[in-house]
Each structure stands twice: as C-alpha cells, then as structure tokens.
Design a protein around this nucleic acid. Sequence first.
DNA 1: CTGCGACTTGAAGCGCGGTTCAAGTCAAGG
DNA 2: CCTTGACTTGAACCGCGCTTCAAGTCGCAG
Lengths: 144, 144
Amino acid sequence: MNEGSLDIAEVARRSGLAPSALRFYEKKGLIVSAGRNGLRRTYHPDVLERLELITCARDAGFSVAEIGRFLVARSGDPDLRVRMAARACALDEQIGRLTRLRDSLRHAAICDHESIVECPDFKQAIGNEPAAGLVRSSHRDRLC
Amino acid sequence: MNEGSLDIAEVARRSGLAPSALRFYEKKGLIVSAGRNGLRRTYHPDVLERLELITCARDAGFSVAEIGRFLVARSGDPDLRVRMAARACALDEQIGRLTRLRDSLRHAAICDHESIVECPDFKQAIGNEPAAGLVRSSHRDRLC
DNA sequence: CTGCGACTTGAAGCGCGGTTCAAGTCAAGG
DNA sequence: CCTTGACTTGAACCGCGCTTCAAGTCGCAG
C-alpha cells in the first residue's frame, strides 16, 4: 500500500468521526477516497484537513448538502460566490446572536433573580426590543 | 376574549413561527398558553419575547430540550448555573469557529484560486489555532 | 488451507424538530 | 337554526444526519 495513504480506521481515529460518517460523507461527495486496499478505503492525508473544515461548517449550521456545494466551488462560478458572500453575512448575524446569547447566559449563571427569564438584564441582552405593547415590528437590518 | 391576550394565529404571524411549531413548543413546555377561547389557545403577549429567545437559542444550536431546561431555571439551582456557564464557554468556541468560517467564506468569494478549497488563505483561516504570522486576530480571551 | 476479524455493502432504523392529516369542536354570521 | 371556517387533537409522516444491521469479502496469522 501507498506510504502516504491512510486506512479508513486511521482517518476515523484521527478525525474523531465514525467510519460510518466517513462513508456517508464520501457518498455525499464531501470527501473522496484515494483508492482501496482490498475492500478497504484508503484516504489521502489531506482528507483530514477537509474533514476539519466539514466539521467546522457542520457546527456552524451548514447542511451537508450545502457544504458539498461549497467544496466543489470553482472560481468561475459567480452564483456560488454570491451564495458564499450571502452566507458570510448570515454568519455575521448569527455571530451577533450567539454573542448576545452567550452574554445573557453568562449573566444568568450569576444573577440572583428567582427565575432567570424574569431578569431584565437577561431579557435585554437577548431581545432587540421588548414587546411591551406599542412595538412596531422592527424592520430587519439590511446591513449586508 | 381578554384584551391583553393573543390568538395563536396572531402569535404565529408576529413570531414568524408556524402554529404547529407553537403547539409543539407548548407540548414541550417551552411556552404556556394563557387560556382558551373556545378551543383556541390564547397567549400572553410576553410569549413573543420568549419565542424570540427560543428562536435565537435554536439558531445557536441549542436543542429544544435544553432550552426547556434553561427556561425553567431558578436561581436556587446550582447545577443549572454550572451548565449555563459551560454552555457560555461552548458558545465562545463556536463564535470563534463561525468567525473564522465567515472570514474564509468571505475570502473565498473574492479569491481567484480555481478551486476554493485549494486556496491557502482559505485553509489557513479554517485551521484550528491561528498558528503564527499574518493572522488578523481579534484577540481571544481565554477565560474558560 | 482455515479461521479470524476488520472491513465492505445496501437497507433499515433512529432521534430530532417539526409538518401534515383526518376527524372533531367551537364562535360567529346569515 | 345551519353553515362556514379557523381552530383543536393525536397520530402519522417527513428530511436530515448519521448509526446499526445482516450478509458478504478480503488480508493475514497460524
């Protein structure tokens, strides 16, 4: 067997993913196997890097299908570039939400209101506007 | 109908969630209905605020069950506080991942490597720790 | 050559987060 | 009164992202 290639079990071990997940990703076109040793898939070491990317994107809420589309992206595909830029903007918004949520959560862990959802600081960090009664639904910020 | 309470359809409209989702959340204990008008659920206006929180947390990757646990949190529950603090730290990590992913994506939409995944800048931004050198580092507070 | 065991496959199954459906109930309008 | 139509219910179903399973195949040690 080729010196540089990795057994599926080895890739699983080093990536922290189950072999079944690797086969699943391969079937979906997110990774490719370098060849076989008998029946066994072997992978180029670069696959580890790609798996890291995949895991990261999955954690970020990307679907497997979407990751697949991005992974085959070529510079000559303007549609895809547009989608990527849009996705980046969506990520910005999500990062904002997560940051506020984190701050609220961190506050909740130390605040002394009986019920944490009652805490005004908590609410304030989460919501953009408390819907106390005379709230017009705020127009979505179209910053992107 | 009580002046202050909202019909489920109204809540659905103003929250952007499907009525079925509202019933689902109610069944899971994430929201409570204020009462009924005939068979129809009515909700206190405060539910809108809570739904915003729920949606935000869902987007952040919290499961419905986990949100439910947090929502019933009382200040006298130290376990839950610990979980919240831990969750806040996890969010910090995720925010970091998302930020790197966003930067990579934004670069990908610009860069002229024929295959996006080939681009060294792209790879570099994804990889775990910014190793050295030319990293546009927002400084990471290691507090966890 | 004969196990053995770790892989292979396609198909079925699972948990999550809802949505859809069939059948029923109610409030209000004509 | 009867109809209309938006709601109600529980149960079935769905898509996703894998995991598990049964059955088969291979490399290698003995």
